[in-house]
Nucleic acid binder design. Structure first.
Lengths: 203, 203
DNA sequence: TTATAAACTAAACGCTGTTTATTATTTAAA
DNA sequence: TTTAAATAATAAACAGCGTTTAGTTTATAA
């Protein structure tokens, strides 16, 4: 009798319930309202039950990161339809920026918050974003190989580009740009993308 | 009798004591250990006393930000000795990067942490970094005016450059670069500065 | 039906930022 | 110098947090 399989499935479903509740709270009420007690309330169980499915709060946030990275990776799939490396690079940047600004709480969790990283001993163990980074890396390499981009190292060029994109959105998300109003943000983001591509790519 | 002045001075000294204790804990033990109770312990007063000198914890962190920005501004003063705009721009970037990596906890407080920003109603009220940003802005403008930098807008160029610098250091500080080991970080930072300056500046 | 295992939770622990009521100290006027 | 008012400091509590423990309820298998 497949009761063991059912148990397994129920365990997985409970984990999903908890993650969904956490994600809902995260997006709807912001990080500070994501507490074990609120999650428990949301799924109508006691706080202690949550600990039967996740080691601790950080493990929940860590699992939520994966959800975010899968989402970003999914968005990147449209890039395969673009053949021109330079165009592809710009589109890759645009996807990243759009994802960040449309999912600020999730982006924050993925790239800024300390808490979910506590589940790892070393930064090298954090491989959750590997796939999404490799997408960028491949495009940058293509740009260099096909002569659209001059750089001493594709690693440096790729990391620089990521740093620029992350810098822009994280400055906005953590509200460090008093000189730029909320209305201007998307305008500035587009301006930066234009400026960067113009500087970087040799037509 | 100048007892009012003495009171004023004592009040100011107490605030300084609290800030110094907070800064010490911040740098020596990291953010999570900076609690009102630990600060109180450090200055040998009760936790409640702290609230006679600061409205709340966020106000302390906010005041600590100012300390950090004064420190960064001080470092920027050596730039006045450099006349060539392009050289000046590179030096400005180097100063920023060095400050960030040498004072990671303070940098985090200034540019990443949410808590100290709660003391402001709107991002526009956060003017503490104005002076340091204007230094960069002026250099970028000089570079454009003297033909070393081509950009459609000095605002966009300046913000892009800041975003890049902030992006790099904040990725390292918040441990989001599994592909780069701690030993490689300063090397990568220098590489990025070289790459960016080469791309940006027309010789 | 009954013994065992699994699922769940009430209550507590130690921590946090913060407030309140109370005490001690200092100041200024009588 | 004495006394009333103002100031400074704190002990103790409050409400919240993540987490653990001990105990109960529910489901499973013999």
């Amino acid at each position: 009798m497949g009761s063991a399989e059912r148990k397994e499935r129920e365990k997985h479903e409970m984990r999903e319930m908890i993650l969904n509740a956490a994600k809902k709270l995260f997006i709807k009420e912001g990080f500070e309202h994501v507490t074990i007690r609120r999650i428990a309330e949301e799924i109508e169980y006691s706080p202690a039950t949550v600990y039967l499915y996740f080691a601790d709060k950080d493990a929940i946030l860590c699992a939520l990161q994966e959800v975010g990275f899968r989402d970003l990776f999914k968005r990147q799939q449209v890039l395969s339809a673009i053949k021109h490396p330079a165009e592809k690079l710009r589109a890759c940047g645009k996807i990243y920026l759009d994802f960040a600004m449309e999912n600020q709480e999730l982006y924050d969790l993925m790239f800024i918050m300390r808490a979910p990283m506590k589940a790892f001993n070393s930064p090298a163990d954090w491989t959750v974003g590997k796939d999404t980074y490799e997408v960028l890396q491949e495009i940058v390499t293509d740009c260099i190989n096909q002569g659209y981009l001059k750089a001493p190292s594709s690693q440096i060029a790729c990391f620089s580009l990521w740093a620029l994109l992350h810098g822009v959105v994280s400055i906005f998300i953590r509200e460090r740009a008093p000189m730029i109003s909320k209305d201007q943000q998307s305008q500035v983001i587009n301006g930066i993308l234009d400026f960067t591509m113009a500087e970087l790519l040799d037509k």
